[in-house]
Simulated assay, not measured.
Amino acid sequence: MQKTIAGLALAAVCGLLSVQVRAEPALEVLGRDFVFPHRVEGVPARLSDFKDLQVNHFVTNDGVKLAYWEAGQGKPLILVPGWSANGAQYINVMYLLARHYRVYVLDPRNQGLSQHVDYGTRIARYSMDLKEFGDHLGVKSADYVGHSMGAAVLWSYIDLFGTGAMHKAVFVDEPISIYSHSDWSEKERSEAGGSTSSPERMVAALTSGGPVNKLITDMKPFERAQSFDSPYFANSEGFASAVIKSDPQAMGRVLFNHTVSDWRDVVRHKIDIPVAIFSGDESNNLPSQRWAQSVVPNATLYSYTSAEQGDHFLMFKNPVKFTGDLQAFLAR
């Protein structure tokens, strides 16, 4: 589950229909430059080094103003953040991918630079937002990458709209069902990735400072989120923390619905496009990712070692390897 660092309310809704507007340079939207704490070869040393990074927005059919980040040229590649995440965290990933694709990161409602609302806070609505985003861009077919809850949004999208507008799909370290049902065997729990039997206590722990332990939720993401042994991760988290204001209450509105959603039937029966799955040795989700690979026809599993930063945040901690593997998969 993504680290809580997101949420900044934008201006009031300016209409009920999606409207194409001119994208603005991220530097102007954020109102400041940013110097990354670690200088790393191959990625920006400061925000202004990423000259074509832009921020745009559109308005959903239920009147919510959603922000998105974009850069690069080429085939469209749409990245869907996890719970509490935002486009700022993707700064290194976008920079590396923008050499080869037109890259988009959509800030979900109540996250990042998107508007905060108290309605539509269900995974199904988030997948509708994603569908409308593709329509807004005029994209007939794109590759999609969902990290954490973003993978669940893709599963919901496939469930509701099919795969006609998807060329390939990538799922990064998301349990198939976070909620572990009381009648499951240990094998079923492991294959689904179940990590809580109390969604209410899990939501309270993640949004309002409730007590947390291994019986409430998987503690590994908490532990790994605090490990800044990757300079890439330290840079992107530092940037996101500086430019995005956190609002746990707004972000938490979707969390219960996300926690109790079981996507095993979608993963088992409805995915008919090439799929890549990413996880690693430092993630307790790895068994469920192996199960997903076993039931999705011709799915490819990329499992990173501890030395390769194979945890829930692998794409941010090791963006060079991740984007290289992603490009190789998309190029097949």
Rank of each mutant, 00 (worst) to 15 (best):
N110Y: 14
L113S: 09
L113K: 01
H116T: 13
H116A: 13
D118T: 15
Y119S: 12
G120F: 13
R122Y: 13
I123A: 09
A124N: 15
R125P: 01
R125C: 04
Y126I: 01
Y126K: 07
D129R: 12
L130D: 03
E132R: 11
F133E: 03
G134D: 00
H136W: 06
L137H: 00
L137W: 00
L137G: 00
G138Y: 03
G138M: 00
V139A: 01
S141Q: 13
S141F: 00
G146N: 11
H147L: 10
S148F: 04
S148V: 02
M149T: 03
G150R: 02
G150A: 07
A151M: 05
A152D: 10
A152W: 05
V153P: 06
L154I: 09
W155C: 02
W155S: 03
S156W: 10
Y157S: 03
Y157C: 04
I158N: 15
D159C: 02
L160R: 14
L160E: 15
F161D: 08
G162S: 10
T163R: 14
T163C: 13
A165V: 01
H167R: 15
K168W: 06
D173A: 06
E174H: 06
P175Y: 05
I176S: 12
S177E: 14
H181M: 11
S182I: 00
D183N: 15
D183K: 09
E186T: 09
K187V: 01
E188Q: 14
R189K: 13
E191T: 10
A192R: 14
G194K: 02
G194H: 04
G194V: 00
S198I: 01
E200F: 01
E200R: 03
M202Y: 00
M202C: 08
V203Q: 04
A204Y: 05
A204M: 08
A205D: 00
A205T: 02
L206F: 14
T207C: 05
T207Q: 01
S208E: 12
G210L: 05
G210H: 10
P211H: 09
V212C: 06
K214A: 14
K214G: 08
K214N: 10
